[in-house]
């Protein structure tokens, strides 16, 4: 019941602070655009004609097979949702720990007969359910709209939302650590974005390190690559997976999950040791 109370509390907070509504509004807008702006005519399993925002595609001769068009389109959407989904989710949950640690509020929570680990992980679970629901709405909505319009049901696209969620949960672990250590909402939101951006150059760590003059700098680049989430690589894997060309590589995903788990573990230890 205590865990349930914490999950409900997280949802209430997200609802009251309009973050849940904001997330749903942006997702709904995206879905509406997709529903009404994209029109496809399919003849004999091939795309005969199509419009986006009322503007016709140029389709030379007989159009490509609809399966190819849909899967390619879904791959592009998956890449977009990967960026948009994580961006929105970080924004929606960034204030969670700092709000919990407000002076006068934390006393009310921590003095209940509930362990601090339980308290923090209960909130984490609340955030995870919140973001799962939102991602399912966004990704599931895109999947349903495209599939209904084209009658092509590519389950890989739906499975991709699992990857997006996994990456987000790793970021959430990091956000919890920043939140526990600093009690700052701006930092809890900015630092994950910084990490997200940092993953772009780090994906090319071999080439970046090779360009370095000192061995120390090169080693630092490699270390950062192995420690931090491999967001860019997972994003690339995600799109190729939706295309059906490859399954996501294990190592980038595993090390990203390990990063999140380690951050969450340190956050729990720090929260337990903290004086309020």
């Amino acid at each position: 019941m205590k865990t349930w109370a914490l999950i409900v509390d997280t949802w209430r907070e997200a609802l009251a602070r309009y973050t849940l509504l904001g997330f749903l509004a942006v997702s709904s807008l995206f879905l509406l655009i997709l529903t009404f702006a994209l029109n496809l005519d399919i003849v004999d399993g091939a795309l005969a004609a199509g419009t986006l925002f009322g503007k016709a595609f140029d389709l030379p001769g007989k159009g490509p097979a609809i399966d190819t068009v849909v899967v390619t389109g879904q791959s592009v959407f998956a890449g977009m949702l990967y960026v948009l989904g994580v961006f929105l989710a970080v924004f929606a949950t960034g204030s969670q720990v700092p709000n919990l640690q407000h002076r006068g509020t934390v006393d009310l929570y921590v003095t209940r007969p509930i362990g601090r680990t339980h308290l923090l992980l209960g909130r984490f679970l609340g955030a995870a359910t919140l973001v799962t629901a939102n991602l399912l709405f966004l990704c599931g909505g895109v999947f349903v709209v495209i599939s209904l319009k084209t009658h092509v049901w590519n389950a890989r696209f739906l499975a991709a939302s699992g990857l997006i969620l996994t990456v987000f949960l790793s970021y959430l672990g990091f956000m919890y650590l920043i939140g526990v250590l600093t009690s700052s909402t701006p930092l809890s939101i900015m630092l994950p974005y910084a990490l997200y951006l940092l993953s772009l150059p780090l994906a090319a760590h071999d080439r970046v390190a090779a360009a370095m003059d000192s061995r120390l700098a090169a080693s630092t680049i490699h270390t950062l690559y192995w420690v931090f989430p491999k967001t860019a690589e997972i994003g690339r894997d995600l799109t190729t997976y939706v295309l059906g060309k490859a399954t996501p590589a294990f190592v980038p995903l595993a090390t990203t999950v390990m990063f999140g788990a380690a951050c969450l573990a340190v956050a729990v230890v720090a929260f337990n040791r903290k004086n309020f």
Partner: peptide, 24 residues
């Protein structure tokens, strides 16, 4: 607590329910 701050988004009723549930 001195200077306590209940989450402002909760009603009086919901506040007591939340902390009651956390107290088991």
């Amino acid at each position: 607590p001195e200077g306590h701050r209940f989450p402002g988004y909760l009603t009086g009723d919901a506040s007591l329910r939340l902390f009651g549930r956390l107290a088991g």
